[in-house]
Design a protein around this nucleic acid. Structure first.
Length: 849
DNA sequence: CTCTCCCGCCACCCG
DNA sequence: CGGGTGGCGGGAGAG
């Protein structure tokens, strides 16, 4: 904690911006644009605090001009030079954000950090610095400058679910400066965010941050509009026609169905709350409209997969642009821009649709789905289907098809594995990509991919979803629903598709509070747990939680819990589940269809048999399942095994998502009690077979267990419990494992991915983290969904004040007033802003206080 | 080569 | 008019 505190403080203080940047840079190396930061940093004094910074600076600065954006970093991504590098990559893949944080942390505590792979990486950088630098310099890759990364950074600055009371003002200038980009780029981001009502313009250079509170609502509206516009039909039509981009004839289509006028008005539906939409009228807002339409396409698509060409065509039509090729090209560019932002929001992920013609770039919706259906059976179905999918996947892998999940499972290696793995038509780029959520998504993707492939192959009926049909011919329809796979830390859980269960695809209405950063983690959970969430929410409501938390939890998630009996675990391999899988034979469809309740049961049963059970997804009916799991978990036998309970709390809001992993063995006792409490939150728990865990980076602190069971006050129990109450919503992920499979370093991994920083927003998580003492290293701290938190004996904090969310938010807030009109801002900027990381840190700190 | 998509010119539009 | 916005597409990095 201490460390954390320091870190937090540091972060909190404006002064550090530099550090952050630096840090980021380091991270950037992985994925983000670094140079920007650097540049800023450079000009300014280096951070005082960290030696590390220096090193970094060194790295960066050397040759570049401050201004120039040359990047240094990153080559890592591109090329893994060493195992470490690989690790980094993995991490990055898992969760870039986390990484960033970690790095930052590392910066703060250079020495300590050595452990982490991250650190290593950093060190490498440092050490190799010169060489690296050059290297980097040479390649300031575009990726670093990508809008997606930029957007992530941007999102990291604000809480996904800001308190209603708080009004966060976004100063474009400030943001641009802090992020080291031209304002023009910020417009791109903001416009897309605005289309989703995440922000609204309040004045020149000023936007108000709304967060994701109403995201589900917005999406619902968009979905409705999309339905009205018959986008689905259009898509189907176009897909069929896709032949040539050139040929697409919209005119006709367009007329068919949809009123153009609406499009323009899309923004109108903006929530009451949002002033934003008001719009300046400006000519078009086309980007905003395009963004909305693009989202609508996903929402109305059964497959949830939209190819860019189809989207571009539709958009062109609507925009009434003359369907020129030229236009088409331009549209596609814009779509990429939008897609990058949406990806950062964890609403979509990139995939490729394999068609006869070949691969086509496409994006798959991984955000909340089925708004309308809330909770009903629909979810269940999906979930079941998901489970089915997973199984299939798994099987596939077992069969020899590649399945990411399996490979993924393995800890570090997993990531690598993942990347390559997908043979499927769909590939998730993101595996490697920076975003944590993406990582998760990857898993999902993979799944889908599998299914898709099957579809392609014919093994599985693509038919799954009829709807999918339309497009599907081309695109995999797999499940419309979201992916379920929940991979906490990147690799971890994935494996278990088992989790699948988790999934509720769409439920999570707002789940993602996490905003972009967090998304991944959240998503997963959310998806999985949507149902749970619902249940939980109910419970929670009953209990009365602090509103803020509540929100969070609402959003998020439901965690799913998988419980793997230790026996099972033993018996089953993490992978084993697949075995169950027979899946192939079973058409996804069937599964899906059935999956529903029956499916669940089946699944669960199977799962159980296999060793895992998904509690929640099961459905709302079982909210409490979690508890069961825990009980089941007991894992009396081998604590050592590692069975762990993975409890994920919904945390959407940012912080929240906590996932707790309790050692299976211990858990029972300790858990038991706690669990009782838990129920309240209905935190999903996953128990991972020891083997499984093994691979995972999960951190486990022996101490934790103890505390948990014995010392309620101490972290574990309390933590969870506490959260539970208040925060169900918040979901911090804790991994407690008897055995620390993973080294602390590894821990980093977990942390990284999942949630991104966004979490900070949530209260709980911070709290928890505090209490638990999240390691500084582990990015987890805040809310990453997946992030693993080591529980050490936490210093005392356990308690919870549970909630301090407010504080944290504050931190997040940008200085509304700040924005200076002046341009100079750029120059000056640096100091303040903090990168997302800071935010995160701050949050924790807040908690600490 | 294709896919992505960064970059920034320059047109809008508002005050 | 100046400055905030943001459409737009050239051109280049990445694969």
């Amino acid at each position: 904690m201490e460390i954390n505190c320091l870190t937090l403080k540091d972060l909190i203080n404006p002064r550090q911006p530099r550090l952050d940047f630096t840090i980021e840079d380091g991270e950037n190396a992985h994925k983000e644009n670094i140079f920007v930061d650097r540049s800023r940093m450079v000009p300014k004094t280096p951070i005082k605090n960290e030696p590390i910074d220096l090193s970094k600076q060194k790295i960066f600065t050397p040759e570049r001009n401050p201004i120039t954006p040359v990047k240094l970093v990153d080559r890592q991504q591109a090329e893994p030079w060493t195992p470490t590098a690989n690790l980094k990559m993995l991490i990055s893949a898992a969760s870039p954000d986390i990484r960033d944080r970690e790095k930052k942390k590392e910066l703060f505590r250079p020495i300590e950090n050595k452990d982490d792979a991250f650190t290593d990486s950093l060190q490498l950088d440092v050490v190799g610095g010169s060489a690296v630098d050059e290297f980097e310099k040479q390649r300031p890759s575009r990726k670093q400058k990508s809008l997606g990364l930029l957007c992530q950074k941007f999102l990291a600055r604000y809480p996904s679910y800001p308190l209603s009371t708080e009004k966060t003002t976004i100063s474009l200038d400030e943001v641009a400066v802090s992020l080291g980009v031209e304002r023009r780029r910020i417009y791109d981001i903001v416009n897309v965010l605005e289309s989703l009502h995440l922000v609204s313009r309040v004045a020149k250079n000023q936007y108000g941050w709304h967060g994701r509170h109403s995201l589900s609502k917005t999406l619902r509206n968009l979905q409705r509009l999309g339905e009205e516009q018959k986008y689905e039909e259009q898509m189907a039509f176009l897909q069929q026609k896709e032949l040539d981009l050139m040929e697409y004839k919209f005119g006709e289509r367009k007329k068919d169905g949809y009123p153009d006028s609406q499009d323009q008005q899309l923004l109108d539906f903006s929530e009451p709350d949002y002033p934003s939409s008001s719009a300046h009228s400006r000519k078009d807002k086309s980007l905003r409209i395009m963004s909305q339409k693009f989202v609508m396409l996903f929402l109305v698509s059964k497959t949830k997969v939209v190819t860019l060409d189809v989207a571009a065509k539709i958009l062109i039509e609507e925009s009434q642009d003359t369907p020129d090729h030229s236009k088409f090209k331009t549209k596609v560019r814009r779509l990429y821009d939008i897609a990058n932002v949406l990806t950062s929001l964890a609403l979509i992920k990139k995939v490729h649709v394999t068609e006869e013609r070949g691969r086509k770039p496409a994006f798959k919706w991984i955000g909340p789905v089925d708004f309308s259906s809330n909770g009903s059976a629909g979810y269940t179905l999906e979930i079941g289907s998901l489970a089915a999918v997973y199984r299939q996947k798994i099987e596939d892998s077992s069969q020899g098809k590649v399945f990411a999940s399996k490979r993924v499972v393995p800890p570090s290696s997993s990531l690598n594995a993942i990347v390559p793995s997908p043979s499927l038509s769909v590939d998730s780029e993101y595996c490697a990509s920076p975003l944590a959520h993406q990582v998760f998504s990857v898993a999902q993707t993979d799944v889908q991919a599998f299914s898709i492939q099957k579809g392609l192959n014919g093994q599985v009926g693509v038919s799954l979803t009829p709807a999918a049909c339309d497009a599907e011919s081309l695109k995999p329809a797999v499940l419309a629903s979201q992916p379920l796979v929940y991979m906490p830390s990147s690799s971890l859980f994935m494996l278990y598709g088992s989790l699948q269960e988790g999934p509720t695809p769409g439920l999570s209405s707002e789940r993602d509070s996490g905003s972009a950063e967090v998304p991944a983690a959240k998503e997963l959970p959310s998806a999985l747990s949507a149902q749970k969430r619902l249940c939980e929410e109910r419970k929670l409501q009953e209990k009365d939680e602090p509103a803020t938390k509540r929100q969070n939890r609402e959003c998020e998630d439901s965690p799913l819990s998988l419980v793997m009996p230790k026996k099972q675990s033993e018996s089953t391999n993490p992978i084993s589940p697949k075995t169950m899988g027979h899946s192939e034979s079973t058409p996804l469809e069937d599964l899906h269809v059935k999956s529903h309740t029956p499916a669940e049961k089946e699944v669960s049963g199977k799962a159980i048999a296999n060793g895992f059970v998904s509690s929640e997804w099961g459905n709302s009916s079982r909210n409490t399942d979690m508890e069961k799991p825990t009980e089941e978990n007991e894992s009396p036998h081998e604590p050592s095994l590692l069975q762990c309970l993975y409890v994920q709390s919904p945390a959407v809001s940012g912080l929240n998502g906590f996932n707790v992993l309790l050692p299976g063995s211990q858990p029972s006792p300790s858990v038991g009690p706690s669990s009782s409490q838990l129920p309240s939150f209905s935190v999903p728990c996953m128990v991972l077979p020891s083997p499984t865990l093994g691979p995972f980076p999960v951190l486990y602190s022996p101490s934790m267990p103890g505390p948990v069971s014995s010392a309620p006050g101490t972290l574990p129990n309390t933590g969870p419990v506490n959260f539970g109450l208040p925060g169900l919503g918040s979901a911090a992920h804790l991994l407690i494992g008897p055995a620390a499979l993973v080294n602390s370093k590894t821990s980093a991994l977990p942390s990284a991915d999942p949630q991104l920083q966004a979490q900070p927003s949530l209260d709980l998580s911070p709290v928890m983290s505090r209490s638990y003492n999240i390691q500084p290293e582990s990015p987890v701290y805040m809310g990453h969904p997946v992030s693993v938190v080591k529980l050490q004996q936490s210093p005392a904090p356990l308690t919870p004040k549970s909630i301090r969310r407010t504080h944290r938010e504050t931190f997040f807030k940008t200085p509304g007033s700040l924005r200076d009109p002046v341009l100079k801002r750029r120059e000056r900027n640096q100091s303040r802003n903090t990168s997302s990381a800071q935010r995160r840190l701050e949050i924790p700190s807040a908690g600490t206080d």
